[in-house]
Design a protein around this nucleic acid. Structure first.
Lengths: 303, 303
DNA sequence: TGCTATTACGCTTTCCGTAACCATG
DNA sequence: CATGGTTACGGAAAGCGTAATAGCA
């Protein structure tokens, strides 16, 4: 009557990989087990889903139609899974706060100490996030709320701005741009920028190379594949060597300039500012997230 | 990692019943098995979903939040299930046509013979449906397309009108209304109408007691609990005894008057007409349904 | 004592891994 | 003969039923 535990997930993976062997590896089960599971599914349904070919499998038309629905189930199931984990954390008083760049306690101590005092029972756990990639929902899996420059705002993703601050260039100390102490966008557009791993969301990455100020024309970029803050920090350490630069939210840039020798932070006077924000998935009912957002709302209201 | 086969379905049922024992009966499993399945789920999730009380169980706040998502999974899973069955029928060339009232071959022979000739490979199976109840989607489970006066048009339910015909009263032959051969709505509004089982969709039932012509005022009705066409036919056989009447699509009414002695069909000249239609669930990709609808579209275009 | 939930235990089926086999370019 | 899918079989675990146990009106 019902589907067996993993049948649908297995089928979706096979359909995506176009090959049972590769799907089995991805699913961490033996290939014959998967082959059998799919056959089982087909016979349960009385419906052929795959054509077997010597180089792999292909979906039948029925298989295509079925795949769409199966994927919906897998997705909703994943959603329950994550919601449950979030609820379980909430029940234990745990909240997972993801961040990009310096730990939020350093750049926004007020918010988090205030929150900790208001909720002494809460156990706040900070977790470094890679730069946003894939869908934001996927990127946030396992995280209750992220503290960062906003990623793509897919459906169900909500944002609350915590602080607005200049976008600031990080440049070698000897760089001409460092001379004035501040700079205009126009002066920076011709520079070469540190680039990101291709999987990083384009909009988010573009913020750091001022793409929103160059009207579609691409920035000159290096051939890096940077995907995390620490990788970026390491890259910035060798800034003088490459001559490439990047833009960061001001607090992050100042911190970098303070920590790394030979690196200067140069605020852009006329760039759209950075809006460091809380980002979370509505529809996961974690009360502490609500509370943290309220905290932020109050302090931005007050100061 | 994943949910076990029936955990979510079990949980939803328990939540709805508020009691493990009753839920177990509804699910056709032993009560301890269900108790254990729920405990298992809770421990898998690390999350308490239920408060146990001596008279049953109640959802915790987490349980409430979880229930909502769990229900979504169960619903999507049901949808795959039904889609798969529909696809399996399609693969075997079978199409399940539901109907209310006389079999469609009697009242719409043209449509179905034409369709059968155009698709000799198709194996059309006619199935009597109870009057529409619950959501139309649920009512249509296992049916590819229904032939009837349209039920509630929930999301994803599509309709194609096949023929428009007068709404016709079925009355005892000696009834004053039978005298003129036809009648106006006003003359019938004061009559007592045969009533339906309370689970029957109100709008659909109301069509038969002219509720759409009495502006919210309820009709005088009998205390029947009629839920199928055959029950209705039986009831109409005793029409003279009770004095109650009903309205049907003209073809149905004429057939009844022809078959049952002492019963007359009296078309209403000024009632909104009956629109006998094909009704199906979009998103179940059954090619023969498309074909049948196209058939109907062509014949209504031609004649 | 009546109602409902849990624990104990054993049987059956499912699931999956290993090994061996089959088919095609 | 390399690649990928299927069949065969055995062991571990899941799922469910029966019987016995526990807690509250």
């Amino acid at each position: 009557m019902s589907f067996k535990t993993d049948q649908l997930r297995y089928f979706v993976t096979v359909a995506e990989e176009g090959q049972i062997t590769r799907a089995a590896e991805k699913l961490y089960i033996a290939q014959p087990a998967l082959s059998q599971a799919i056959s089982q599914l087909e016979s349960d349904l009385g419906l052929q889903l795959l054509e077997r070919h010597p180089r792999g499998v292909r979906l039948t038309p029925s298989g295509e139609a079925f795949l769409e629905k199966a994927r919906a189930v897998v997705d909703t199931e994943r959603d329950v899974q994550l919601t449950a984990q979030s609820l379980a954390r909430a029940a234990r008083g745990v909240i997972e706060v993801g961040f990009i760049g310096p730990p939020p306690q350093m750049t926004a101590p007020g918010l988090f100490t205030e929150f900790a005092e208001a909720h002494p029972e809460a156990d706040v756990s900070f977790r470094e996030l890679p730069f946003p990639r894939g869908t934001t929902r996927t990127w946030l899996e396992g995280i209750d709320v992220a503290f960062c420059q906003p990623p793509d705002l897919d459906e169900h993703i909500e944002v609350h701005p915590v602080r607005v601050e200049p976008r600031t260039l990080v440049v070698p100390a000897e760089h001409p741009l460092a001379a004035g102490g501040e700079a205009r966008v126009e002066q920076a557009l011709g520079e070469t920028f540190i680039s990101y791993h291709p999987s990083v969301q384009a909009r988010w990455a573009g913020f750091h190379s001022l793409d929103d100020h160059r009207g579609g024309a691409p920035a000159a970029v290096t051939e890096d594949h940077i995907a995390t803050s620490l990788e970026m920090l390491g890259r910035l350490g060798g800034l003088a060597v490459s001559g490439a630069i990047t833009a960061l939210p001001d607090a992050d840039a100042q911190l970098v300039a303070h920590v790394l020798p030979g690196v200067a932070a140069v605020p852009l006077t006329d760039a759209a500012p950075a809006t460091v924000s809380l980002v979370w998935h509505a529809g996961r009912a974690h009360p502490l997230v609500r509370a943290l957002v309220d905290s932020a709302r109050r302090s931005s209201g007050t100061g």
